[in-house]
Design a protein around this nucleic acid. Structure first.
Lengths: 227, 227
DNA sequence: CGCTGCGTTGAGCTTCTTCAACGATCGTGG
DNA sequence: CCACGATCGTTGAAGAAGCTCAACGCAGCG
């Protein structure tokens, strides 16, 4: 498939004419990465930003002792590392492919030029950054004000929302990565999953979890009740 | 002082002609708030965003049990609540004046119109949001990967950086608020401050803290050492 | 003078992490 | 085809960090 057709699918480029899309495609380069491959590391000089065409990428911070905190997991159509472009500094976190992926790379300069010429793109980008800020605020709230069961319940309900409100949600990532996303460790997550199961809140089978008691989960998520 | 002169001082409006500044001033309204006054609450419909002309405002989330997590403290020249404008939803957190303040309010619509007409403003806004995202990422890292002493050390070194690298830093906020900013409670913060003092890392006097051992603080901040 | 907000200190408890061991699954190479 | 190692997940016991609850000191202010 042509690159510009794939870009048409990316929310960031919504509202662009096909001419403009072509222009965007012209300054971009595709890049294939294999599972487990590092895309960039915290502190690297920012050369540009990426869009995930296919696959899955995690953005994360590392502690001295090796513990990691995942900031974001990006999939099809999502841009990442734009922040570094606009602050004009080094990448503030690490990026690694969780699956074999195909990325699209936009060099800093060409991209900022393009944005300042197309107000529609600027607005799209502002909306994208705003949504991301909201997610971060949510994450901060979770980490600071909720205990792990509450964070997990919130996450499960969110996933259900993303997946047609189905009671059977697909995690899409290994449990260890989920732990890292929720700001905890695999051991703790495992214990809490089994506690939730034994209390009839959920039923788990591999990477698929069935929500059995939405109301109970909501109470956990809001912090009104403890596990 | 004329409003447009004050706006010229705001980074967000950098690079605008005086005509454009006047235009911005025309759609804005000033608003005075007293110490402790709520500016908006989480879930309120977004009518527009604000710039702090004078004073101090905190943005925070509240837990069921009343514990609060401060997301940001804004002072002179800083905009807030732009996120709600671009996502077009309700305010995602609470805003309250920590001091008697003067604000400048911009209605959603007039502001987005203005931004799409002035690429310079769009770029300024993108830069502002990016910096904010970086700060949030930093906060998430702190909350998840560092213990309270490390967070405090990081914060003190950051404050010093903002204050001419002086060894004597001014907190600007009461200690209870600092606790809430660092994701902990006043009791814990108090204990850690006294532990740091007894170990010769700092010396505190009211709202002013003297850094006695920058290197020791750095080791704490990076997590290489424990208190 | 008494009140209220803020900060400090102590004792006990909860939650989470650490450390260690073990089981399951999967892909690879013999 | 089986054996092996690697990755991943689970479980247990012990320990650490931070929170809760309660009491107290202190300053500012009506």
């Amino acid at each position: 498939m042509k690159l510009e057709q794939q870009l048409a699918d990316v929310p960031l480029f919504n509202g662009l004419t096909s001419d403009q899309l072509q222009q965007a495609a012209a300054i971009a380069m595709t890049q294939n990465v294999s599972r487990g491959q590092t895309i960039f590391s915290e502190g690297d000089d920012c050369r540009g930003f990426y869009v995930v065409l296919e696959g899955q990428v995690k953005i994360f911070k590392l502690a001295m002792d090796g513990k990691e905190q995942i900031l974001h997991i990006f999939g099809h159509g999502e841009p990442f590392a734009e922040v570094a472009v606009f602050t004009g500094t080094t990448y503030p976190a690490n990026a690694l492919a969780l699956k074999k992926s195909r990325l699209c790379f936009f060099p800093c300069r060409a991209f900022t030029d393009m944005i300042s010429q197309h107000p529609a793109m600027a607005m799209n980008m502002l909306a994208a950054l705003s949504i991301r800020l909201k997610k971060f605020a949510h994450m901060i709230e979770s980490l600071s004000l909720k205990e792990v069961p509450g964070r997990l319940a919130t996450h499960l309900l969110l996933l259900s929302g993303e997946q047609d409100n189905s009671d059977t949600v697909e995690l899409h990532i290994p449990k260890g990565q989920l732990a890292s996303l929720l700001g905890t460790i695999p051991e703790t997550l495992s214990r809490i999953l089994s506690r939730m199961t034994s209390q009839g809140l959920i039923k788990g089978e591999g990477n698929t979890i069935t929500l059995l008691d939405r109301q109970g989960l909501s109470l956990l998520a809001s912090g009104e009740e403890k596990l």
